[in-house]
Simulated scan of single mutants.
Amino acid sequence: MNAAPPEGLRARKKRATENAIERTAVRLALQKGHANVTVTEICDGADISRSTFFNYMPSREAAIFGRPLKMLPFEDAMEIMRASASETLLTAVFRVALASVGQATVNAEVAAGRTQLSMEQPETAASILSPFISLSTDLTGLLYLWLEEDHSRRMLPNVEPLREAILTVSLVGNGLQVLLAEISGSEDQTIAEESMHQLLAEMETLAHQMRQPRG
């Protein structure tokens, strides 16, 4: 993880408000249980009005668990894939994922809080993961079409393109979850491509070791 890069004043104010809402929502969920948190309490804790809350969040659940994520428009996503054609396939998908989220910046307190929430209140795990499910489905469809468009792009020519797309997106998604779970501190941090490459190298080593006989 890297420290977040400098932002303009307007972006900083927007980010500060988002962070205040999400930090408050997650803190309250940890303190009193996610089902007992109200929008009014979140607004009071974040020192914002109810209208401001709904300008930033579609629902109470989004503030606690994370906002729904959708892939950016198909042609924009394809343009990123084309621009990243000389990079690894995982890098290209990673870039589309971050562009879809709208930023690579993550608030450490919020990320750590949601990880803690999923462990202390296991029933929240599915809700915390749900924002990523729709995005993963969209990314899989995009990658499937990308591989079908030119078979030379495929790394697993002996399996169906859909299977390769699912496996690739799963690697990116699981990698992001690991990176988010490892975030610590209180400052905004940036998910860097280098961190993802290092993580995937570790996953490759682990997969290789798991195939070796023990004893």
Rank of each mutant, 00 (worst) to 15 (best):
A97P: 09
T105G: 14
F94Y: 15
A126S: 04
L139Y: 08
P122H: 01
L129M: 06
Q103E: 14
I128V: 14
Q121D: 08
Q121N: 04
T124D: 00
T124N: 04
A92R: 10
A92S: 13
A108R: 07
G141L: 00
L117Q: 03
R114A: 06
V101K: 15
S134A: 13
V101A: 14
S100N: 11
T115F: 13
V101I: 15
L98C: 15
N107V: 00
I128N: 09
V93F: 12
F94H: 15
G102Y: 11
A97Q: 15
R114E: 03
A104W: 11
V110E: 04
S118F: 01
E123I: 02
T137S: 14
A108K: 08
V93M: 14
S118D: 01
R114V: 03
L129Y: 04
E123W: 00
S136V: 02
A92L: 10
V110S: 06
R114N: 04
A111I: 07
N107L: 02
L139I: 01
I128L: 09
A111D: 12
V110D: 05
T137I: 07
D138A: 04
F132D: 05
V106F: 14
N107K: 03
S100V: 12
S100K: 12
V110W: 05
R95D: 14
M119N: 03
D138L: 02
A92W: 11
S130M: 09
V93H: 12
V93Q: 11
S134V: 07
T91R: 14
A99M: 10
P122V: 01
S134I: 05
F132G: 09
P131D: 05
A125P: 00
T140P: 03
I133N: 10
F132R: 06
A126V: 00
A99K: 13
G102D: 07
V110L: 06
S134E: 12
T137M: 06
E120C: 10
S136E: 07
P122D: 02
F132P: 00
L139S: 07
A97F: 12
S118E: 03
V106Y: 12
G102F: 13
V101W: 06
